[in-house]
Write a protein that binds this DNA or RNA. Sequence first.
DNA 1: GGACACCGTTGATCGACGTCAACCACAAAA
DNA 2: TTTTGTGGTTGACGTCGATCAACGGTGTCC
Lengths: 246, 246
Amino acid sequence: MKAAVPITVNGLKASCSQCNLVELCLPFGMSEHDLNRLDELVGARRKIKRQQSLYRAGDPFEAIYAIRAGSFKTDVLLEDGRDQVTGFQMTGEILGLDGISAETHSCNAIALEDSEVCVIPYGKLEEMSREVEGLQHQFHKVMSREIVRDHGVMMLLGSMRAEERLAAFLLNMSQRFTARGFSPAEFHLRMTRDEIGSYLGLKLETVSRAFSRFQEDGLVSVQQKHIRILNASGLKRLLQHQSGGR
Amino acid sequence: MKAAVPITVNGLKASCSQCNLVELCLPFGMSEHDLNRLDELVGARRKIKRQQSLYRAGDPFEAIYAIRAGSFKTDVLLEDGRDQVTGFQMTGEILGLDGISAETHSCNAIALEDSEVCVIPYGKLEEMSREVEGLQHQFHKVMSREIVRDHGVMMLLGSMRAEERLAAFLLNMSQRFTARGFSPAEFHLRMTRDEIGSYLGLKLETVSRAFSRFQEDGLVSVQQKHIRILNASGLKRLLQHQSGGR
DNA sequence: GGACACCGTTGATCGACGTCAACCACAAAA
DNA sequence: TTTTGTGGTTGACGTCGATCAACGGTGTCC
């Protein structure tokens, strides 16, 4: 009695139960039974080309998105032209939560490489999370995690020095690559120095200099966007010594 | 057939339907019918003395809190002793959302003056928001608003100069006092210069100097913690001129 | 292959904010 | 009233990171 899988504009219908990102994504920790219900929830997949936006500040809020492949940055713009990267997102992470409060997105989400997301219509999500307890709880956890993450960034921006910020950034990237089955020590950054700087509240030259310094000190090897961490505990130590900061 | 209102340790049982903070708090926008159900949800009130903590980082997460009276700060601590204020909260605002993700609080919530909160047991909240659509939606909005707010702070910390940060802070306070029926132009800050500095990523001396500068320029009148805004549009102008920043 | 962007690196200089220190204002206690 | 403590202000000086500028590497489009 099951209807045929509908063909969507952008290709295959998403399926959480078949997806190898379950452990990183919204369905984490849900029962197999609940998982099957998620397949109803998640709409089409959508492909976004590098530098294209998934949504822009001011767009009406209709759905949240799970990153199926690729990576994104989110940024906010001030009237005067200044902008700030508020986060980098990788596979399995959820985009668009900022839109719920005002029913309008409050930042831009831009693909750092050709990417693909699963579209999760928000109305449906609320509806289903009234029925599926596991989904409700997971969704709340995802939102809460975003809040905790943001507090970490505030800590970083408010009280760390340039090299500490970059060290924290690299360790965070390493940890997230590891969670995705990649090497903890060797990875490829998808963002420019300018974007890293914007995220860390630094100018690109400062980011570049900090990279060079780390290289001199044998902490990492840097070749453009290719990073190899040579001394992870050295990086961690940088974070612990209270080095005056601001 | 209604049971008598139970007497709680800390005094009166909270009642959303009777509360004059509805428009600022979790129940905002909910129907009268739904509102009555909220009275079941909200547990006892709890009083917190100035400088006492409502919860501390590491405490098991059991409830979220709505501020009934008074005000709070939240802060995070790093191992090395550095700490950072992540927010100031006023009446009607919700505390504790950081705890959902790890089932443990990730920051400290400390009363800036003698205060009172309504305790909202989290299990009950999830349960009831499966039944009451309006509650579910409002709760999601509250979480999302927190995320948007944090992005604003990241913007401030990452790309504004000292005086811009303080101007943004004052305008934000003014706006929140106004929403609570107080004067937009004249108010009493409950936090020290050190706490403001920690929140804004500045040292207390820098905060103090910025206040003095504003006073010289006739933008505000400052007498210790008592602030009078003399030229709000002047403060706003400070934010728009892109003044180089970092 | 050559030309052109774009991105990244490095150096020299400057300025905003941190640091250190002294002093002042106000409130609670003696 | 004086005392003591906490919080706030102001000045002199130092430093970290921004700014300005030149140059080098890498990839893409003719």
